[in-house]
Simulated assay, not measured.
Amino acid sequence: MKEITPREVEKLLEEGKKLNIIDVREVDEVVAGKIPSAVNIPLGFIELRMDELNKDTEYIMVCRSGGRSGRAAQLLESEGFQVVNMTGGMLAWGGKVE
């Protein structure tokens, strides 16, 4: 599984790169703040909502600490999706939140 650090994600966003970020935390966790442009799909719904994703697009998976996003990344990768797990999750995120 490919990985990316929170700082690398922040730098890409600062450079104006369009990233496809999926936040797999629960809705009540996301209310406290998420990375701007991130889409919330709780881990328990990833399998049900795979049809909304494109296998030709790379997705950065995010959660609180990196564990759930790692599981989501493994699941999606096994189904042929291009995914990268953000290590450390939102606990390690130092960038802007919305």
Rank of each mutant, 00 (worst) to 15 (best):
E14N: 13
D28H: 01
R49C: 07
G33Q: 08
V27W: 00
G70T: 10
N54Q: 13
G95C: 10
R68G: 02
I41V: 07
M61L: 15
N54S: 14
E14L: 15
M1I: 08
M50H: 09
E3A: 12
P42C: 01
S65H: 10
L43C: 00
G80L: 08
G44V: 10
V31Q: 05
P6H: 13
G66C: 04
S69G: 14
K96D: 06
C63G: 08
S37F: 05
F81P: 03
V9T: 11
M50I: 15
K17P: 06
A92L: 10
T57L: 07
E58T: 15
V31M: 04
E10T: 09
R71E: 11
K11Y: 06
M61H: 07
K17H: 13
K55C: 08
R68W: 03
R7G: 09
G33K: 07
Y59M: 13
L43P: 00
M61P: 07
R7F: 08
E98C: 12
L19R: 04
K2D: 14
R71N: 09
S69E: 12
N54C: 10
N40M: 00
L12W: 09
K11H: 07
M50N: 09
I22H: 04
P6I: 08
I41R: 00
V97L: 14
I35W: 00
L48D: 14
T57P: 11
P42I: 00
V97Q: 09
K2W: 09
V62A: 09
L43T: 00
R71S: 09
S69W: 05
S37E: 11
R7A: 15
K18E: 13
Q82R: 15
I46V: 15
V84E: 05
R7V: 11
F81T: 05
E10V: 08
E77Y: 08
V39G: 01
A32M: 12
L48V: 14
V30F: 00
S37G: 02
S69A: 12
T87L: 13
I60K: 03
S37M: 07
R49E: 11
N85P: 04
G80E: 10
E47D: 12
F81H: 05
K55L: 12
E15Q: 15
A72Y: 06
V97C: 02
E3P: 03
A73N: 12
G88K: 09
S69H: 13
G95E: 07
V97Y: 02
R68Y: 05
G16P: 11
E3N: 10
L91C: 08
G88P: 08
Q74V: 05
L19H: 04
I4P: 06
C63H: 03
G89M: 11
K34V: 01
L12S: 12
R49L: 15
A72T: 06
V30Y: 00
R64C: 02
I46W: 00
T5V: 11
L53I: 10
A92K: 11
E52L: 15
D23L: 02
G89R: 05
N20L: 02
I22A: 03
G80D: 12
G89T: 11
D56K: 14
G94W: 01
V62P: 07
Q82N: 15
E14G: 07
G33F: 04
C63M: 05
V30N: 00
A72C: 10
R7I: 12
T57W: 09
G67V: 13
L13N: 04
V84H: 01
G80F: 09
L91T: 14
E98P: 06
N54P: 04
S69Q: 12
L13D: 03
K55S: 10
R49V: 05
M86N: 06
L75K: 13
